[in-house]
Structures are given as structure tokens and as C-alpha cells.
Write a protein that binds this DNA or RNA. Structure first.
Lengths: 143, 143
DNA sequence: TATCGATAGTTGATATATCAACTATTATTT
DNA sequence: AAATAATAGTTGATATATCAACTATCGATA
């Protein structure tokens, strides 16, 4: 496997970081005052209101402490609301506010465009193939 | 391109983060008191002594300020030495110390094993194919 | 060679991530 | 039911990243 495996993970890192930077820069350009991670959490919450902070942490690969603070920021920005949970007093009920939903609607075209831009010149079959390999890597590293 | 492109970058992020965590955990287990980024910088320096701090920053996708501090840490750990540059008074001459070289020698088997582990079940052709696609993404996001 | 823009690196402020220790609550076991 | 384990989330300490403003030096050019 020669030298390729030496640079493979490097390229992997470079690809995702380039994409993140590109996305973050466009968020900023277009006046969306949130980070990529905040966006991911907001989106996840809007799709499933039952997610706990721990779930969200796992979802974006951070720990619970980081999630506490990330959500604090979303609340400060009035994009998410924290309220008492119906059944558990340990948990919180996290709800996307109207302002949050508005932001989602406004940002989605940009998100779609970002993906399109990042994947320009790559066809569906290729994408599928890469995804399978990414899954193998994830599996290798988490078991 | 259906839903796949929605999750593609997510998988990409998950793959590299899983790998990083795996590597960092093994560094810790085996008593190597450095971070993955510190390792990358150390390795790069050992292979090319002429690299400036700015070069190194670019190499590991950080800014110059971060690199200043990362190198401070490598110096504190006595793995790298900073000295006056022969020709330019703006630059520093960064040298891997004996202790640094020793660490490199000791850590390399682990590095190789990590790569092997992370890429288990993936053949060379697949790896090449993925790499081509990663290059496209990098190109798309940096131009 | 004097001027001026570019470059190498640092610093302080701020943002964010991570770890360990902790509280409060809920679930499980005996 | 009481004891214990597991879970959800927070906090403080620390590590690291990023940004903008800055100093010093170098290189190009007029």
C-alpha cells in the first residue's frame, strides 16, 4: 500500500476542513451569525424535538459539556428555547423558536448550494462508493 | 442526488473524527504525551528542516498564531529546538532534538499500525479512488 | 538608497473543546 | 422499599483555536 496510506488520512482531513471553512465563510458572508456546529444542532432539533443534549452531543461528535455551552449560545441567540421536560426532571425540552425556523428556511438554499459546490464533478456512484469506505473506516475506529 | 449528499459530508467528518480519536487514545495509552497535530508538525520538521512556522501552519490547516503556540509546546517538551535563522532574522531555525528523533522512532510503529487498523478491509484501488474524489472536494472548496 | 508593500512571527482577547468532578434525578437490583 | 447503579446535565480548570492588531524585518521598486 506504499505511500498512499500515509497521506490518505491527511487528505481526508484536508477535504473536510476545506469544506468546513468554505461553508463557514459563506455563513459569515451572508450574515448568518452561527457556526456550522450550531447549524447542525439546530437542524437536528427541528427534525426531532425529542433529542436530548446527550443525543445531540453524540450527533455532532462533541461531549456533553460542549453541548451545554453550544445550546446556551443558541438560546442566547433566541434560536432555541429551553423548557422543563414533560416527564423527566433531568432533561430539558429543547424547542426551535420561530426565529430559529425562519433561519432554517433562509439558510437551506445556501446549504444546498454548498453541498453542490463541494461535490462538483463527482457523480452519484462515486459518492456511494466513497460513503461505503467511510463507513468501514468509522467502523474500524469505533470497534 | 437524493439524500446522500446531505449525509456525505457528515460521514466524512465522522470518519476523520473517529480516526483522530482512535489515534489520540492510542497515543495516550502508550504514554506518548503529544497530540496528533504536534506529531504531524514534528514529523514534517524531521523531514524538512527548512519549513517555516507559516509553512507548518498551512500544512496542518491552522493559522500562524496557533502554530506559534503549538511550537512553544514542542519546545517546552524538548522535542524541538528554536534557534536563530542563518539568513533571515524574521524566521527561526526549527530543529528536531535528539529526544524528538527518539520519539519519532518509537512512535512510528504505532502510526503504521493505526493506519492499517483504520483502513482494514479497504483495498488499494478503493483508496486511490477515494483519494481522487477527496482531491476534487479540496479543489472545489479552495478555488 | 529611501520608500513602501509583503512577510514571519507574536500577543491579547475571545471562542470553543475537553476533562474530571460534581449534583440531581431516574432506573435497576436485591 | 432501600441501596446502588446509571443517566442528564452543569461547572471550573485547562487546552487549544481563531481573529485582529501589532512589531520587526525583508524585498521590490522607483
Amino acid at each position: 500500500m506504499q505511500k498512499l496510506n500515509e497521506i490518505f488520512f491527511y487528505q481526508l482531513e484536508k477535504a473536510i476542513k476545506s469544506y468546513r471553512r468554505y461553508v463557514q465563510a459563506r455563513f459569515k458572508d451572508q450574515g448568518f451569525g452561527i457556526t456550522v456546529d450550531q447549524w447542525l444542532v439546530l437542524k437536528a432539533l427541528s427534525e426531532n424535538a425529542k433529542l436530548t443534549q446527550s443525543d445531540l452531543a453524540e450527533l455532532v461528535f462533541k461531549d456533553k459539556a460542549s453541548m451545554t455551552r453550544l445550546i446556551e449560545l443558541l438560546v442566547l441567540k433566541k434560536l432555541v428555547q429551553r423548557a422543563a421536560h414533560e416527564t423527566s426532571r433531568r432533561r430539558f425540552k429543547l424547542t426551535v423558536t420561530d426565529k430559529g425556523h425562519e433561519l432554517i428556511v433562509q439558510i437551506i438554499p445556501l446549504i444546498k448550494d454548498n453541498r453542490k459546490h463541494g461535490l462538483r464533478g463527482i457523480n452519484f456512484a462515486e459518492l456511494q462508493a466513497v460513503e461505503q469506505i467511510l463507513k468501514k473506516i468509522i467502523d474500524n475506529c469505533t470497534n
